[in-house]
Every structure is written in structure tokens, then in C-alpha cells.
Design a protein around this nucleic acid. Structure first.
Lengths: 243, 243
DNA sequence: AGAATAGTGTCTGTTAGACAGTATACA
DNA sequence: TGTATACTGTCTAACAGACACTATTCT
């Protein structure tokens, strides 16, 4: 038990961000090549320490997001994943990292972040299957972030955060298929999506595509909680658990 | 941007725990009366600082759980809710609190925690409706914890964590009704619960109750992820949002 | 037999999944 | 009119919600 003059230990606080987007109909995450030790030269999630004792954690996440990804104008979705504070996760000392999940619309231009030297979009599938190692415990953080995104697609309008201001229904379907890693029936998807009140709202204009019939445009409806939810197909219930 | 000799700021790290249980068929949370400033004498979630620089955050949560609630033998469910790190949330300085959600079976005995002086179980409903103020940002943490529990009842076997080693189906139903704050149809509940493979497993013995036909006993089946999920009734979809 | 609690069975409207055809635009 | 893309309609099996009765124990 703490005595009278006992002082709590001091630790460093960092933020790390799982920035997800769609590129070429595949789920990608933004990674940076580390320019300093430890893990110099290896790939890691973008992030950094709090600037000062007064900086808000969420504000720090927003700042890192701005520095690393060049999201001109767009206000991406940003939510906290949790704190990762196992001793020894960073050889520099006791560091607690607050992880965030960000969802960005797929931008035509490549990364070209102002700050981080080698920033790149990497396909998530290859990393999760163990084909690529990340620094620190970032593999776990990424896995948690992807699982959060998959789950929230079911019962929130998070999918629209992957799209631009306006989008077509098949673009929205590609989001679900890429994040969930499944194929969905086109007709059932149309029916369900348009059946959830307030999920998507029609926009008068049509988008001219290369060929064929132009698709109708939609924007995110006001509703953020989807009811009834869009349930993902049975994941062949093998019993695995968190914690 | 940090320069060469820049050092990250140091902050204090605490853990706070939302310990939920069922008492008299109502959802309760464990609160303690603060014995020191700030918020001296007010009610707060149990918690405290890391013991030392080497203590794991999850281990600290387990330690606080052991100190505050006397859970003889039972291994309660414990999962992280997230980090709460807004500057100014604690007048003593910059403190980041990692919040945890714990679910404990309802014990017949009152609290009598070894450590905290005035620990008591308080009904959650009254607090959430604004009828009771908590110290710090603990009202928000409690609200997040309850919402997490409500959500996880749908698609995980979390409800069994509210029960003892063995339980009857109507006891399980009382968990759902208390946490969700709704009434469920008894017959549909029996059908659904027994339809989810691996959710509950029968135990040969019957429990002698006061009167009437003895109820069959079950224990938690191996499965932690429920498929199909037990969806809670439509919450009259009014559009509210987190973040 | 009555009281008290435990546990089924059925009916119906809705939904999910599977599937094939029609519509619109451009060359 | 051919091609390429966008969209819609139907059928069926399963499920959800509503509802009323039977079963077992003790006194």
C-alpha cells in the first residue's frame, strides 16, 4: 500500500494510429519505416509521443494523423482502440501507447506525407496472415483495429467513412467485401442497404463512369447506428477469444 | 517536431474499474467513498495508481479488483475499456487512467472489502439517469462500461460471468433483463439460448429452490462467441453517437 | 388438490440467402 | 445492336415475436 509520501511512477505516453483505407478494392494500412532506434528500418504504425504535458491524447492522435497522412480537407473517422501498456513493449523504457483507429477515404494520390520519410500503404491481408512483421506490438494493435472495423461495419455507418463525400452502392459494397474479406450477393446487398432507414441518402446527380449505365450517387444519411444491423456471414464459428 | 535532445513528457498512470454485478435482479456497480483529496468524501470507481514502473497495467487492474471487492475464489471477467486522458480530468496533475470492466457473480455477502473504507454496491440505473454524481470523469467511464456490457451480452457469453459456476436458465434471463433494462419473453428466451451451440451446457444435478419444480442447472459452455447472436430489442432508434 | 415454479409447442409475419432477368448508357 | 455496367423481382427456408398450455415438486 502507498504510504504518506509515496509518489506514483511516471511513464511516457505515446499514440499509435491504425489508418485504414481502400486501395484497388483491398484493405490497406498506412505504415512508416522507422528512422530511429529501436526497430530502425522496420515497419511500424505511425505515431509518436505526446508533445507536452498539456496535450490531449485525442488531439495528439489528430496531430499524428495530419502529419503522417495527407488528408486534404477530409475529416476522417477517428476513435480510440485502447491502451497498450505491457512493460517491456518498448526497450526505451516504460511507455504506454494509446492506439487509435482511423478510417480514410481512398485517395487517388499516393501517400507523400510531409513528415515521415518512408510512408506507404500496405495490404492488411498479408500482414495479418503473418507475412510481414511490424515493430513493437503493432501487429496486435493492427489486428485489434481491423477486428474493430469489421465489427463496427455491422451496426454502424462506419463503411461510409471509407468512401468520399458521395458514393455508389457498389462502391459501398466493395468496402464491406474488402473489410470483411467475403463476397456478398449484389441484389441482397442493394435490398438490405436501402432497407436501413437513414443509412444512405440519394443525391440527385449521377456519376459518369467509363462505360455502361451511370450509377446513382448517395451520401451518408444522418444515422450512425444501423438497425437492423448488416450481419456478416457466419465466420465458421471456431472458438477464439480476446484478452 | 521533437529535436535531438527532446524528451517525451512524463505522466502518471492509474487504473479504474467498473465492477458490475447483479443484486436483487438489478444491475449494481461497486463504488468507494474517497478518503483523500480531491473529491474527498464523494463516490468514485475503485482504482489507483500503478504500484511501480514495472507493474503491468492489467496486473494493476487485477490487484485493485482483489483489494476492493472480496471475490473469494471466483475469477471474474476483466477486460479493458480504454484510456481516459483528457488534461485537467484530475486536479493533481496529468493523469491517464486506463479503465477496465469487471463482471462478478452476485455474492450473497455484502462488500466488506479488506482495503477501501466505504465500499458499496450502488444500482446503476440511478447513476446513469443523473441521480448521483461521481468523482472525476467516472460517470462517463461507468456509462461506457455499461454500454460495453450491454453490447457484449449480444454476441458473447459474457452473461454467464454474472452467474455462479452453475445457474438456471431463468437466472440467465434475469441477467439479460437487468443489464439491457427490458423484459424478455420466457419461452423465446429458452428457445434461443438453447439454440446457440456451446453457449450453455447441462449439469446433471438439479437445484433445490424454495418451492415448485426444481430447475435444471447449466454451466457455461466452451463457446465465448455467440452465433447467431442474441439481439436486444430495438432501442427505438434515436440517433446518438460516441466519440 | 392446490400452489408455486419450470419448462414446452405452435402459429404467423418477416427476413435472409439463393438465383436470373431487365434497364440505361455509349460506341 | 452489341457491350458494359446498374439495377430490380421472386421464391423458399429459417427465424423472431406473440401467445397458452403442460410438467414437476412440495404441502
Amino acid at each position: 500500500m502507498p504510504e504518506e509520501s509515496w509518489k506514483p511512477p511516471l511513464v511516457m505516453v505515446a499514440v499509435d494510429i491504425v489508418i485504414l483505407t481502400l486501395r484497388a478494392s483491398k484493405l490497406h494500412v498506412l505504415l512508416v519505416e522507422r528512422g530511429i532506434e529501436p526497430y530502425l528500418g522496420e515497419l511500424a504504425l505511425p505515431g509518436g509521443f505526446l508533445n507536452n504535458t498539456e496535450e490531449d491524447v485525442l488531439a495528439a492522435a489528430h496531430r499524428e494523423l495530419r502529419e503522417e497522412a495527407n488528408l486534404h480537407g477530409t475529416r476522417p473517422h477517428l476513435e480510440q482502440l485502447g491502451a497498450y501498456g505491457t512493460p517491456g513493449r518498448d526497450p526505451r523504457g516504460r511507455i504506454i501507447s494509446v492506439a487509435y483507429l482511423a478510417i480514410a477515404p481512398s485517395l487517388p494520390e499516393p501517400v507523400a506525407g510531409t513528415d515521415a520519410a518512408g510512408a506507404c500503404w500496405e495490404p492488411v491481408a498479408g500482414i495479418l496472415s503473418g507475412g510481414m512483421k511490424l515493430a513493437f506490438d503493432h501487429h496486435q494493435i493492427l489486428a485489434d483495429g481491423v477486428e474493430r472495423a469489421r465489427a463496427k461495419l455491422e451496426y454502424t455507418s462506419l463503411a461510409t467513412a471509407f468512401c468520399g463525400e458521395t458514393f455508389t452502392i457498389s462502391e459501398l459494397q466493395q468496402v464491406y467485401e474488402a473489410v470483411w474479406g467475403v463476397e456478398l450477393d449484389l441484389r441482397n446487398f442493394y435490398r438490405k442497404v436501402q432497407g436501413v432507414a437513414g443509412f444512405i441518402a440519394p443525391v440527385s446527380t449521377d456519376r459518369r463512369t467509363t462505360k455502361g449505365r451511370p450509377a446513382r450517387l448517395f451520401r451518408a444519411g444522418g444515422r450512425t447506428v444501423l438497425y437492423p444491423p448488416l450481419v456478416r456471414p457466419n465466420p465458421l464459428v471456431a472458438d477464439e477469444e480476446e484478452q
